[in-house]
Design a protein around this nucleic acid. Structure first.
Lengths: 258, 258
DNA sequence: GCAAAAGTGTTGCCCATACACCCATGC
DNA sequence: GCATGGGTGTATGGGCAACACTTTTGC
């Protein structure tokens, strides 16, 4: 946009700007096999990559801001209304040749959808479906890279934001929330300490009036998402290996006291 | 890029994609007034916003990836070579009308430059200069918003990465590093605890051979940047007010023991 | 000696962990 | 009763803030 380089259309052949969506959800949070993170994908109907799964997305319209385009695409693909789900800008990708047809820049957005959402309500893409994250099937274009960036963003944000609740229905138990963390981080968390930590962090969750839901064992208290936008103190991933804290070494060449 | 919407040039009038740079540095780290964060700006030579300062930037060339374009612009504006400075993608902006001439999408990059760098070496923009962050002067287009996003990114990243060293010359003292934190976060840090914390975090800094530099008082040990890409444990901003940890309240409707 | 800055030792608090233990339900 | 899952109490260890104290220089 800066002007010390003039814009000459001959130097800059037509470029398209699209919005691609990384929509993540958690499947079968209580079941053993098949449970895990899944991403929304559509099967491409034409070349290139015909028949290959890709992230949903589309062109940014002339009257739209980027976030508006992302929200519109999300609604078209899933029927989810913005406000219901978390939606944030992820990153942009624009390597030459990433689409063989023309120069295409894409702005990727990350959305987190509740576990129970049914895709089929209002979707305009009947070929849409959830694809387990980390599977062997490669996506079209550079979408594997975009998906990996989205997953890593989600993993990191669970640490210092209450975003894990975005994977849960409006009312949820602490154990459900814990399973979100365990699945996304691929770790085991102590149920007792997790409970205390979550209920003790201001604004993370608020107790719902309904006292309990019954399945097996003692009924659990239901909670709703709290008002906080960041968690203090954060929940740090135990997966990162913690190197032993270094003793501040005496500086080399320093005048030690032998 | 997805294909369930065909691309029709009549629906999508020419769009340009640019890269804008938020280059931050710290001015006068030891002096009182005038010290603080500063951003690289250029004065616009033509309409719109003629004579107004703006972030440096330019068009992405057909054979360039986004990161390459950002590195090229950075070199053109400052003479800094990639590898010398930290450069990362920040966010993208594309509201309709943000440039009155045409639809312009911009991918912003954040760069952190050492304190002592002299701009004039190799710059092609003689009208470039450092503008104190937070001053009253508004920037052209939506660049105030982009700059604010860049500053917030830098503030947040100092917590869990060794990026503060990017503001320092190759060899620096712990006190210099502490002043970076104090300026960027606008807080006071205890010199003793900061020293212990930095030297005790694996990979943050490594002692340089040269024992000391003399100014006033006892000469300080010199350090270089370490190999770590993330800090564990992180240095948390004391500026965020810490609400008292909640006692996990007995759930309402729960069967308390009165 | 005195001021100034670098760097160390020490203490107390808070938090995270680990785990023993109690509570409430279905069968 | 017994299994199952929800939730609390408590001991232990470690990081961090606070601050007294020592070291090394310029004046």
């Amino acid at each position: 946009m800066e002007d010390h380089e003039a814009y000459d259309p001959r130097d800059y052949p037509p470029a398209a700007v699209t919005v691609d969506l990384v929509v993540l959800t958690i499947r079968d949070p209580d079941e053993g096999p098949g449970r895990g993170l899944a991403a929304l994908t559509v099967t491409r109907g034409e070349e290139p990559y015909q028949g290959v799964r890709a992230l949903p997305g589309g062109f940014v319209r002339p009257d739209e801001d980027l976030a508006e385009a992302a929200a519109r695409e999300l609604h078209e693909e899933t029927g989810l209304r913005p406000g219901t789900v978390h939606l944030e800008q992820l990153a942009s990708y624009g390597a030459p040749g990433r689409d063989p047809r023309m120069r295409v820049f894409t702005v990727a957005y990350l959305a987190l959808a509740p576990v129970t959402e049914d895709l089929r309500a209002g979707t305009d893409a009947a070929d849409a479906g959830w694809l387990p994250v980390g599977g062997p099937e490669p996506l079209a274009f550079d979408h594997d890279r975009i998906l990996a960036d989205g997953v890593e963003r989600a993993r990191a944000k669970l640490e210092y934001t209450p975003l894990a609740a975005a994977f849960c229905p409006p009312e949820f138990t602490i154990a459900q929330l814990r399973r979100v963390y365990e699945i996304v981080w691929d770790v085991r968390l102590d149920p007792r300490n997790f409970h205390r930590k979550v209920t003790g962090t201001p604004g993370f969750v608020t107790a719902a009036g309904a006292p309990a839901v019954k399945e097996r064992g003692r009924p659990a208290q239901l909670y709703r998402r709290g008002a906080a936008s960041t968690l203090y103190p954060p929940l740090l991933r135990p997966s990162v290996p913690r190197p032993p804290r270094l003793r501040p070494a005496p500086a080399p060449g320093g005048s030690g006291n032998p």
